[in-house]
Amino acid sequence: MPDYDVVRVFCAPNGGYGNELGVVRDGSVLPDPEDRQRCAAKLGFSETVFVDDPERGVIDIYTPTLRLPFAGHPCVGTAWLLDVPELVTPAGVVGARQDGEFSWIEARAEWAPPRTLRRYATVAEVEGLAVPPPGDWEYAWAWEDEAAGRVRARAFPGRDDGIDEDEATGAAALLLTEQLGRALNITQGAGSQILTAPQPEDWVEIGGRVFLDR
Rank of each mutant, 00 (worst) to 15 (best):
Q179N: 09
F102K: 04
A172S: 15
D60W: 04
V29H: 03
L21F: 11
E144K: 09
W111P: 00
E106Q: 06
A153R: 02
P200R: 04
A40M: 01
L30E: 02
E101M: 11
V76D: 09
V29M: 01
R67S: 14
A172K: 02
E34D: 12
P114C: 11
E125D: 12
P132V: 00
A190S: 15
R115F: 15
V23S: 09
V9F: 14
F10Q: 06
L68Y: 01
V51I: 03
R152F: 04
D166G: 13
V88E: 12
Q179C: 08
T78L: 06
Q193I: 14
S192L: 11
E146L: 03
V210A: 07
I61K: 06
D136I: 00
F70V: 00
R115L: 10
S28G: 02
T196Y: 01
G191Q: 08
R38S: 06
T122E: 01
L30S: 08
D5S: 14
D5I: 01
A130M: 11
L81V: 02
W104Q: 06
L43G: 14
I206R: 01
Q193D: 07
G191D: 11
V58S: 10
P134M: 09
D161L: 07
A183H: 13
G18I: 00
T78E: 05
L82K: 03
G149H: 12
G181V: 08
G100R: 02
D26E: 13
A71R: 00
N19L: 07
T78W: 04
V24E: 05
P200K: 05
D52S: 08
P85V: 04
P200S: 13
V58Q: 07
F211G: 00
A142W: 09
V23C: 08
F10L: 05
F50K: 01
L176Q: 05
W143N: 09
D52Q: 08
D213G: 06
A173N: 15
Y17W: 14
I59E: 10
L174M: 15
R56D: 04
T169E: 09
V76K: 05
L68I: 02
F50W: 02
A91F: 06
V93W: 04
D60H: 09
I163V: 15
V51C: 05
L30A: 10
R209H: 10
A183I: 11
L129H: 05
R209E: 10
R154P: 10
V123E: 00
E201C: 03
